Computed example of a mutant assay.
Amino acid sequence: MKREPLSVVVITYNNGGTLEACLTGVDWADEILVLDSGSTDDTVDIARRHGARVAVHPFDDFGPQKQRAYDMASHDWVLNLDADELLSPGTREVIEQALVAPRYAGFRLPRRERLFWTVQHRRGRRNGLLRLFDRRRGRMNDVEVHAAVEVDGPVKTLWRADFINDGDRDITTRMDKINRYTSSMVAHKLRRKQRYTGLRMVFYPPVYFLRQYLVKRYFLDGWAGFIASATGAFYAFLKYAKLHEAREQAARKDPH
């Protein structure tokens, strides 16, 4: 039986270092759509070399930009990848089988993380993320941080498939990302009036470390897994530390 046609959608900005691997793994798709935000490196050239349809739109936020790209896709079924992500061997066949008369609104794909000089062990616990979906039944939600697709209908996890987040190739890159992400989350958390910031600063980081190292089985990845768990715990600490700092600064400006 013939499968549903598929559009692979990627949003980009100066991703020349990772886009080649990303698009090489999906050159079998019926369409590759790259929505760029004005890259100044070779991102657009790489996309066009892989036969991608390239569009350009200024970046406003991840949610709106991804939805814009989905709306531009030629086909109803969309596979969403970030520019630093790539499909693992064998995932193509699982996806193509899932798209033969699909009975679901979408499919989750398990994600394996790059842990600096290695990749998360296959026996580690992987998070299933909704990346393959019928765009007629799905849209990006309006969550300010970590916006994601939500679909109207049943969703299935394709455990025999997975993809690799290939972004954190060294500790410096990881720490730079942590600093950016935690800063971008402050305004969102202030609007939510999140409580017990001090307690979260003290108790959540060690819980986060144990969850990563033991529950997600990062211990299988040696020192890379330990360092990834430790930097993750620092991320958990820093987002609440920055929130506490913002509240202290606001209180000093307006003592009443």
Rank of each mutant, 00 (worst) to 15 (best):
L109E: 10
V202G: 00
T91I: 08
L35K: 00
R252Q: 13
T40F: 06
D36R: 09
N15C: 14
G138Y: 03
R180L: 11
W117T: 10
D60K: 12
E245A: 11
L130S: 08
S229Y: 05
P110C: 06
R3T: 04
R217Q: 10
W159P: 00
Q67N: 11
R111L: 14
G90H: 11
L23S: 09
D142Y: 02
M1Q: 05
R174A: 15
Q97R: 15
L243V: 00
L243P: 01
A105D: 04
G25M: 09
P58T: 08
F59W: 13
S37K: 07
E20G: 09
I95S: 07
F133P: 03
Y204R: 14
T118Q: 14
M201S: 03
A105P: 02
P154N: 06
R195S: 14
M175E: 05
R112F: 07
D134A: 03
R122H: 08
K193F: 01
G63H: 11
F234A: 10
Q249R: 15
Y218K: 11
A148S: 15
T172K: 12
N127E: 13
Y104W: 12
K253A: 12
N15F: 04
V119E: 14
L199W: 14
P102L: 00
G225R: 05
M185E: 14
V186K: 00
D27V: 04
T197V: 15
E245I: 00
G16C: 07
Y208L: 10
L35H: 04
R3H: 12
A147T: 08
H121T: 01
A228Y: 15
R174N: 10
V143I: 06
E245W: 11
L23T: 09
E113L: 12
Y240N: 15
H50T: 07
K66I: 12
T182W: 00
E150D: 13
R53V: 14
T231A: 03
L79V: 05
I178T: 05
S74E: 15
G106S: 09
A224N: 15
Q65S: 12
F237N: 01
E4S: 13
F203L: 15
R137N: 11
L129G: 00
S88N: 12
R68E: 04
A228C: 07
V9M: 09
W159K: 13
T197R: 13
Q194K: 09
S37T: 02
Y196T: 04
W223E: 07
